[in-house]
Design a protein around this nucleic acid. Structure first.
Lengths: 233, 233
DNA sequence: AAGTGGTCTAGACCACCTC
DNA sequence: AGGTGGTCTAGACCACTTG
C-alpha cells in the first residue's frame, strides 16, 4: 500500500513534521540542511525545499539563509481569512445588496489613521463613510480613509454608485494588509446607522493596506449584530 | 535600472497581475497556458508556474488541470491570522500567565459540536472548560471538546497543569481548521468567569480542527473585553 | 569568507479534468 | 482521449547572513 509517488513533497513534509512532533527535533533545534535531507530521502533538494516551504508557511519551522532551518519555539495556528467584496458576500447569501454613500470629504489624516499607516506627517486623504445594506437592512458600516497621493484616480470615481470597497479591490492591488478584529459595544451613533440597539455587541474589522510602503486605504468596518467572519478555502 | 533577475518569478507575477488589472484579461477570462507565457517571457515553464501559484493563492486567479487558468470573477482579500498559544500571547505582552482548569468530564458530543465537526452521530468526547489569566486577571475562557477516539492520549494528560490548548498545538498537527469569529453580548455567566460587566461586548473565536477528516477538537474561546486579534507575518 | 536557503532551467512524467 | 497544470530531477548560480 505505497503512495503513488514515493518522493512526493507532501510525503516528505509529513515525515519531517512527524519527526518534529516525535521530538526527534525539538523547539529551537536546528534541522539538517536541505541537501542532507535530500540525501536521506533519496530525492532532489528542490523537493525537500518544497516541503520546507510549506512547513515554514504553516509556522512550524523558520528558515534563514546561512542560518539554516530551525523548529519554531512558539508554534502558531495560521488561518487564512477570505474577505470577499461586501456586495458579493451579501448576494451569496441570497439577499439583495444595496449601497449608500453617507458622506465624503477631503481631510488631512488624523492621528489614528496616521498611526495605522505608520506615517509621521499628515497626508491629504479622502474620507468616505458608507453603508452596505442587505435586503434594505443595514449590514456593514464603513468609515474609510483613502490616500489620494497613492490613489489619485479615486477623485474621479462616482462613489455614490460604486463602493470604494469594490473599486479598490478591482483596481488596486496591495502588497501588504494589516487586519485588526475586535468587539465593541454599540453607541447611540451605531444604533442610528445600523438600526441596532444601544449596547449591542458589534463586530469591528479594521483593515489597512499599502502598495510597497505607500499607503492606500485604512478603514474601520462595523458589522450589524450577528455578523460572523469565517475561514474557508 | 533593470532588476537583478530579469526572469524572476516575482517580476513575472507582477507582469501578469498588471495585465489583469489593465483588463488585458478581465474577470472570467481564460489566461494563456503556462507554456505560452513561458515562451513570451523567455523563461522556463516552472518559473511561470511559481508566479501563477502565488496569484492563485492570493485569490486573483483560479487554476484547474485541463481547464487552464482563469481570472477570478470575485476577487477576495486574503489575510493570514496568526493565532499563538495563549500562554505565549500573554507572555509576549509582558504579563504573567496563569492557567486554571475549571472542569473536565467525558460527555457525548452535543448537536452543536457534532455540527461543527460535520458528524452525524455523537462521539465520546472530553469536555474541558478552562480559564487563561494574564496578571491574575481573566484573559480568555475556553470551552473545548476533544474527540478521544482521535486523541486517546489526552486522557493521560494532566490538564490542571498544562492547558489542552498547549498540549494539542505541541503534539497534534491538524490538516484542516475552521475558524469562526463574532461578537457576543456578555451574559451573567460570562461576567462571573471573566470578571466583566453584563452587557459587555465580547470577542468570540470558535475553532474546529481535523486530521484528515478525523475530528480533533472544537472550542469556543471568549476573550475579555478589549481583546483584539491581529494579522502579522 | 563561506555556508545555507532561494531561484532558475530544461526536460520528463504524471494526474486530473474537460472536451 | 487529449490537453493542461502539478511535480520531480539534476545541476547551476545567486543572495543573504552569520561566524
Amino acid at each position: 500500500m505505497a503512495e503513488k509517488q514515493r518522493h512526493s513533497w507532501v510525503a516528505i513534509r509529513d515525515s519531517i513534521r512527524e519527526m518534529i512532533l516525535n521530538s526527534t527535533y525539538g523547539p529551537g533545534d536546528k534541522l539538517p540542511r536541505d541537501e542532507e535531507f535530500a540525501a536521506r530521502f533519496g530525492c532532489a533538494r528542490s523537493t525537500v525545499h518544497r516541503a520546507m516551504r510549506d512547513l515554514a508557511q504553516s509556522g512550524i519551522v523558520e528558515r534563514r539563509r546561512k542560518g539554516g532551518t530551525t523548529v519554531r519555539r512558539d508554534p502558531v495556528t495560521r488561518a487564512t481569512l477570505n474577505i470577499p467584496i461586501t456586495r458579493l458576500e451579501v448576494e451569496q447569501k441570497g439577499s439583495v445588496y444595496r449601497y449608500q454613500l453617507i458622506r465624503q470629504s477631503m481631510q488631512p489624516s488624523p492621528p489614528a489613521i496616521m498611526a495605522n499607516f505608520g506615517l509621521h506627517e499628515a497626508r491629504p486623504m479622502l474620507r468616505v463613510e458608507a453603508l452596505h445594506l442587505a435586503d434594505s437592512r443595514p449590514y456593514i458600516f464603513e468609515d474609510r480613509w483613502i490616500c489620494v497621493e497613492t490613489v489619485p484616480e479615486i477623485a474621479s470615481v462616482d462613489l455614490s454608485r460604486e463602493s470604494a470597497n469594490e473599486w479598490l479591490v478591482r483596481n488596486r492591488p496591495y502588497s501588504k494588509c494589516d487586519l485588526r478584529l475586535y468587539a465593541r459595544t454599540g453607541t447611540s451613533t451605531d444604533s442610528e446607522i445600523l438600526q441596532s440597539e444601544v449596547g449591542d455587541a458589534l463586530f469591528v474589522m479594521e483593515r489597512t493596506t499599502w502598495i510597497s510602503d505607500a499607503p492606500i486605504t485604512s478603514l474601520c468596518a462595523v458589522a450589524r449584530p450577528g455578523y460572523q467572519l469565517f475561514t474557508q478555502g
